[in-house]
Design a protein around this nucleic acid. Structure first.
Lengths: 132, 132
DNA sequence: GCTAATGATACCATATTAGTATCTTTTGTC
DNA sequence: GACAAAAGATACTAATATGGTATCATTAGC
């Protein structure tokens, strides 16, 4: 069970690198540094650009740059972009087949755990990663 | 992003039901109660049986029964059986492409969160679910 | 021996994830 | 203005995971 897919993985690395360089970075440079397939990297960066994490410049001398401050980019945000909304209990409780229905203890417990984890995850931003 | 797949979902429900009935239960009964496709349910129960959660009896009058006490069956166990080992950081950190390598802060942070969540998940067992 | 049960196994369908390819648009430089 | 170097858009393919089906073998009670 993977909680972070390769999409998210590459995206996080790319964003970290771009954040550290503090200038406009081309796909070519990223591909060389991170060893990720070119077309795949392009697609990821385009998505990050559409989602307002990155800013892009076309034409010669173009590339990508952060659109917002590293401390304002949270990894849950990136996860959501590439993996959809993060939640622990998918189907288990939405159907009322669940023997205990409303008062189901499992639901409550899992929700508590999920909220704790999310609250902690929400605090991790790019700035705190690259400071390491 | 689903953290509990349908496999696990059905397995948990089946185990809960069997735990509540406290007797040998056939696939037919489970299928009627839970509304899960028969063949699929069979496969799931066979797996639970192989993994020593359930005990099976062949032949007429046969079926499935818990092999261990409800309070000793934890949902992480079931998750592991159907979804593999539970871990937050799949690929992101195992490769040393990670810019910060050993001292990577993200790794530490994610590990802490993961351990917290797992510790809490580990405490939820079947007994605590059916008590609700 | 029949029937009702599980065991083992092989297969198919669908969805998600990962990756590739190609054509278009923009922009700086000569 | 022509060219080259960049991203934008989009469509396609491949691999893997998930969800589900089907069938034959084995076991045990009546």
């Amino acid at each position: 069970m993977k909680l972070i897919t390769r999409n998210t993985d590459y995206a996080l690395r790319a964003v970290c690198y771009i954040a550290q360089q503090k200038k406009v970075i081309t796909v070519t440079e990223l591909v060389n540094v991170l060893g990720v397939p070119r077309s795949f990297m392009r697609k990821i960066l385009q998505k990050l650009s559409k989602e307002k994490i990155l800013e892009s410049y076309k034409g010669q001398g173009g590339g990508f740059r952060l659109r917002i401050l590293p401390k304002k980019i949270f990894i849950v945000q990136i996860m959501r972009i590439f993996q959809g909304p993060v939640s622990l209990n998918g189907c288990f409780l939405k159907k009322d087949v669940c023997p205990n229905k409303g008062k189901c203890l499992l639901r409550k417990k899992i929700n508590i755990i999920e909220n704790n984890a999310l609250m902690q995850l929400r605090q991790i931003n790019i700035a705190s990663i690259i400071k390491g």
